[in-house]
Write a protein that binds this DNA or RNA. Structure first.
Lengths: 339, 339
DNA sequence: ATGAAAGCGCTAACAT
DNA sequence: ATGTTAGCGCTTTCAT
């Protein structure tokens, strides 16, 4: 049942079949305007007849450009990175590039190995979510002149492009929404302060609260950002707030559940906003109002900025693009009429 | 701050630096045994000094083999596929191949477009999770002689390799476990019968129940396999079973929660087994006993079978590899002592 | 054990 | 408007 591996047609075969030279065929394919319409027609027929498919590898050898870009990330299994991958893959596809998936599995040596692989392949560039904040390892790529875009990690713009989501804004809109919904005693259920995202989201929350004199903001820190810890926190709460901002959706789901166990109703008694728009946010019993991060856009933009750098080269200006998060309204909060 | 894009060293540069011919350099790199140890040493020094990195694209042009394999799947964002991707990426890396991520986004034309791209790139093969059961579209690859391995979808072994998980066995071990834990009145909380996986898992459940004369098996079908529907089912249940097998973890999580609302205790009153070992299974309040599918192994094996076909060619025998699911014991069931 | 040379499939000057 | 031709960087006979 195996097909006979037919030797693929080459450009010469097409040229012969169309009765023209190889360069004409090449022109038809790459700069159609330079060639007579009728000739072009003949060539295209021959292409179709022979099912000719150009070999970009050979072309790249000649032109010096390959057509693959690397995507280096810690773990595709993490839905955040998976979404980046999806966005990046889409953008790459649209622009005719292929995306090489480099899953470093949280291992620095493997990440390094992938960098080497990308150098070998003469990848035109790479989108990378680096394992460590220390950018030294990236030099392997840099010194080879391979453009790169950092994702989910800002970088001084003079050093290169980067894309990330504004977590301060995210915290702010989350709490602003709670305020808009009438909450005044707001609790931030946060992860460890040392996590930059957590610190930023809290800072945003503070900014929002400052705009309302009568509003108060409290904070409780969960050891881990899981459903179980969210539940635990709900159980231990002495004074119930009327609004809770959980810095991720697992905590939020757990909190909702823990409150339900105590007979506290969401959103009637406590309104809850989560963060991340993970699957769980919409699956949970009381669906979660949450902050959505445009993660796919992150991936898409990263690739596009990369290609701009690749194609524009000289005129390209590095950019640290920061995306705005958005609010997804669901059942765990109750917008006041007219808001 | 941009590095000066240094023109990469070529094999000629190395040859010159080492005072040998290019073919010797090539031999040192590819068939070291053919070259004098001392010469090899000199060459290797030159390679290091110039930071020479071979260009597999150029090599491939000569040898006819590329070093990239395609991974075509409907959506990396789906954790099942993401896990396949992770396994595949690891295997590809270990074997020195690069993995091209082709996320078809559930769109047939895009899937087709990726097939064309893989043909262009002369990919050595592809691992594909096809969008439709209809394999016609795969012919684009087949007729070009590009070996492929189907993932998560069995295929008659004479047509090619495939890897999948045995859902019947999965259903069987899930229910067998409930029986072992003392449950006798077992309810299957299933998804639509038309979904092959659901049908298979139920069939496995039946097999298990048949081994115990006194055991009974019921079934209820959820419209969607979500937490919300799981909860709904728990609320509507008239006669409580003493064991429940939910054919995915969302249903299981919802069921647990719905039962809790009614004051029914898991696992004391009802023991619950889920399926899939999604993140949610371990995050939920009562952690779920569930059936784990070795999804990463699926991806890994797919790539390895592919490379066997690529490298062995003649002696390669197609194989429909079926993986066994396993049970993950957590809090929602209570193994009897000694079991 | 080593080297010379012929391509792999394509593009891009340069000619015509 | 079309054709001729010289490589891109590498592997691989075939000589030496």
């Amino acid at each position: 049942m195996d097909a006979i591996p037919v030797r693929p047609a080459r450009i010469q075969d097409v040229a012969a079949a169309a009765g023209v030279s190889v360069s004409t065929v090449s022109n038809v394919l790459n700069r159609p305007e330079r060639v007579n319409a009728r000739t072009a027609e003949r060539v295209r027929d021959a292409v179709a007849a022979l099912d000719y498919v150009p070999h970009p590898g050979a072309a790249g050898l000649r032109t010096g450009h390959s057509s693959s870009i690397g995507l280096v990330l810690p773990d595709v299994t993490n839905s955040f990175y998976a979404r980046i991958a999806r966005g990046a893959a889409g953008a790459a596809y649209d622009h005719g590039y292929s995306l090489v998936l480099c899953d470093s599995g949280d291992e620095p040596e493997r990440e390094q190995g992938y960098f080497t692989m990308l150098v070998e392949q003469r990848a035109v560039g790479a989108v990378v979510v680096p394992l460590s904040a220390d950018p030294t390892r990236l030099n392997r790529l840099r010194e080879r002149g391979i453009p790169l875009v950092l994702a989910d990690r800002a970088m001084p713009a003079q050093d290169g492009c980067s894309v990330s989501v504004d977590d301060i804004a995210g915290g702010r809109i989350a709490v602003q929404h709670l305020l808009d919904c009438g909450a005044r005693d707001i609790l931030v259920v946060n992860g460890e302060r040392s996590i930059r995202q957590c610190a930023d989201r809290y800072q945003g929350a503070r900014q929002a609260v400052r705009t309302r004199r009568e509003a108060r903001l409290g904070q409780v820190v969960a050891e881990e950002m899981t459903v179980a810890y969210g539940m635990e926190i709900a159980r231990r709460l002495d004074d119930l707030p009327d609004g809770a901002f959980c810095t991720n959706d697992f905590l939020a789901a757990g909190l909702c559940r823990g409150l339900a166990e105590r007979g506290v109703k969401v959103p009637e008694d406590v309104q809850v906003v989560g963060y991340g728009d993970l699957d769980i946010a919409s699956f949970v019993g009381t669906t979660l109002t949450t902050v959505r991060q445009p993660v796919e856009d992150l991936g898409r933009a990263a690739v596009e900025m990369l290609l701009d750098e690749v194609e524009a080269r000289a005129e390209h200006a590095h950019e640290a693009r920061v995306f705005a998060p958005g609010l997804v309204l669901r059942d765990s909060t109750r917008s006041l009429a007219g808001v």
